[in-house]
């Protein structure tokens, strides 16, 4: 029954997302500044008709302590680099961490849909507003680069994004 309910919830969430489903998007579109966030990245189609083999996500400054979720059928890799400023993680200061997540050697046909999960924490020093996770799908003969962070409503390939809100407004 729980599985059924969660299945129904996912279906309803997908339904609510509506036409934006055509873009690579995040399932949860809001997060509190300073809070932990589980990102569910939705990949709706391949490159034209080609299957997706690689999904790369850039981790921008301000999202730290990042842990990607491994995925069956895909090889998980991360690119680790220094943070420009340290982040306080339960008393310890983090000075480096994941800057890019790569799921590769996979095969997601254009006709199918999949989700890629990672989690991390938004720094308390971030400003309210749109936060982008630029994402690239790589296929055998091309790519779909969801890296447009202009915020333009008519952008062809907007980067997956969410709204950062002050923690009181995030609704705990």
């Amino acid at each position: 029954m729980i599985r059924f309910l969660s299945g129904a919830a996912i279906a309803a969430a997908v339904l609510a997302a509506g036409p934006v489903f055509a873009h690579a998007t995040l399932e949860v579109r809001q997060a509190g500044i300073g809070s932990t966030y589980k990102a569910v990245l939705r990949i709706p189609h391949g490159c034209g008709t080609e299957a997706t083999n690689v999904v790369r996500v850039q981790i921008p400054v301000g999202f730290f302590n990042v842990k990607p979720m491994p995925k069956a059928g895909w090889t998980l890799e991360t690119v680790v680099g220094p943070y420009e400023e340290g982040y306080d993680n339960h008393g310890a200061t983090l000075t480096e961490g994941v800057r890019e997540i790569i799921w590769k050697d996979g095969n997601l046909p254009n006709e199918w849909y999949d989700e890629f999960v990672f989690r991390g924490t938004f720094a308390g020093t971030l400003e309210p507003g749109t936060f982008y996770f630029p994402t690239i799908q790589e296929c055998a003969d091309g790519e779909e680069a969801w890296i447009d962070v202009s915020g333009d409503e008519n952008a062809e390939m907007p980067a997956p994004s969410l709204e950062l809100v002050p923690v009181e407004a995030a609704g705990h």
Binding site: F4, A11, L15, P44
Partner: peptide
Amino acid sequence: VCLLLLLVVAPVEALA
């Protein structure tokens, strides 16, 4: 119920 939901969801998936 799942089938019903899928039917509703299916056209959404075509919206690329």
